[in-house]
């Protein structure tokens, strides 16, 4: 169960898709890191993820974790963005039988879930057909 502070720390990524670009090898890390996963360099410049991509693989979750209980069934995919970065996210506004490997998608700002009727509402990104 996340806490508000844990989610708040990720707002630049979840709200604005902010990523880090390695100053040495140019690899983009999302979320940004302290150590480049490709070359080990420690200096980065700020960048943003590309808005569009295509589905690499996907599934339909029918047995959800409890905070997503009301949303099931829902589709989750690994999307390869046009800048090469791969991101996991739900695919919504798309009939399940229309989702396939290679489907063109784009980011959209959506509500992820809330902690019951009285808790914080967590927002983030999902994918919709482009």
């Amino acid at each position: 169960m996340p806490t508000p502070s844990r989610a708040w720390r990720e707002f630049p990524q979840r709200y604005r898709l902010e990523a880090g670009k390695c100053k040495k090898c140019g690899a983009v890390s999302f979320p940004p890191r302290l150590v480049c996963p490709v070359c080990g360099w420690r200096e980065f410049s700020k960048t943003k993820l590309a808005e569009n991509g295509k589905v690499l693989t996907y599934t339909i979750i029918r047995v959800p974790p409890h905070q997503f209980a009301d949303q099931a069934p829902y589709a989750v995919a690994i999307v390869e963005l046009s800048d090469g970065v791969k991101v996991t996210g739900q695919v919504v506004d798309c009939d399940f039988d229309k989702i396939k490997i290679g489907l063109r998608v784009k980011f959209e700002f959506r509500k992820m879930y809330s902690e019951g009727e009285a808790g914080v509402i967590y927002y983030g990104y999902k994918f919709v057909p482009a």
């Binding site: 009301d70 949303q71 959209e108 700002f109 959506r110 509500k111 992820m112």
Partner: peptide
């Protein structure tokens, strides 16, 4: 609206 949409999510997309 879908369950994952509300005034805030629609405001963000319209503003973009």
């Amino acid at each position: 609206p879908s369950p994952d949409q509300d005034t805030i999510t629609m405001s963000v997309e319209a503003s973009k």
